[in-house]
């Protein structure tokens, strides 16, 4: 069949951004989106902090809401000690949230749909929380892998299980975000490509029939908006949870 084909994955291919300079230093189009996300975050902060009013305006309310949301998440999940990690959790949360949300816009690269990106973030969280564990408890942190209250003869079996369970954290953390974002974007592309296919192959009838995938895409847009927020939240709360384990060892 001649005409358009569905290229659901082309949207994820990397190119270099920022013109010749970007090409020289391998600054990619996903990095452009990251820069955009970071810029939006900083801009929102700058807007929110412009008046510093006692009764906040719209932008200030938004920033304060985000602040208190992540603040409460840190305190509730990690405890009072969690405030040490608050800026880190906030950075990760806002970066992923903005990445997910900006990725929903046409022509914006969804960098959270790249496994290399999510895996790097998850590995950082994993290494960091493990480091915090060893920093807080020294080598006693290894006891984390020895479940309490089980007979000794079971330990040689249970300790490897605990270690594998622990090591699988960055994998599940990164794959969850990557899969959710990729799936949504692929679905969108597939339905949109389907509309083109219908129109090209069936003419006017096809153009009318393509209302179906169009409405599906509209519904999907709402769902993706939800997923974008939810996955950023899940990533952040799991980061807090791992830090909680590192600080409290239980």
């Amino acid at each position: 069949m001649a005409g358009p084909t569905i290229d659901a994955l082309g949207q994820f291919s990397l190119t270099t951004g920022l013109g010749n300079l970007g090409r020289a230093v391998n600054f990619t189009n996903s990095n452009e989106a990251m820069l955009g996300a970071a810029a939006v975050i900083v801009a929102v902060f700058a807007l929110g902090l412009k008046s510093k009013a006692l009764v906040p305006g719209r932008a200030q309310s938004l920033v304060e809401m985000l602040y208190e949301f992540v603040h409460n998440m840190c305190v509730d999940t990690i405890g009072e000690e969690g405030l040490r990690f608050f800026p880190l959790v906030f950075t990760i949360f806002s970066f992923i949230l903005l990445g997910n949300l900006l990725g929903l816009f046409p022509y914006f690269f969804a960098f959270t749909s790249h496994i290399a990106v999510t895996l790097a973030l998850a590995l950082f969280v994993f290494v960091f929380s493990t480091g915090v564990g060893f920093y807080t408890h020294g080598f006693k942190f290894l006891k984390f892998f020895v479940p309490s209250g089980v007979p000794t003869w079971l330990l040689p079996l249970l300790v490897p299980i605990e270690i594998i369970s622990y090591l699988s954290r960055p994998v599940s953390l990164s794959v969850r975000l990557f899969a959710n974002m990729t799936a949504g974007h692929v679905m969108w592309e597939v339905f949109a490509g389907f509309m083109l296919l219908l129109t090209a192959s069936l003419g006017v009838v096809g153009a009318f029939a393509s209302v179906v995938p169009l409405s599906l895409n509209v519904a999907l847009a709402a769902l993706e908006l939800l997923v974008a927020g939810l996955q950023a939240y899940v990533f952040a709360i799991l980061t807090c949870l791992y830090l909680h384990d590192a600080v409290h060892m239980h």
Partner: peptide, 25 residues
């Protein structure tokens, strides 16, 4: 580029972290 984007992400995140932790938050 697949791995280079991670390097640049690290740079962006460090800058963002410093901005947020020293100024914004």
């Amino acid at each position: 580029l697949t791995l280079d984007q991670v390097g640049w992400m690290a740079v962006i995140l460090v800058v963002l972290y410093l901005l947020l932790s020293r100024w914004g938050l």
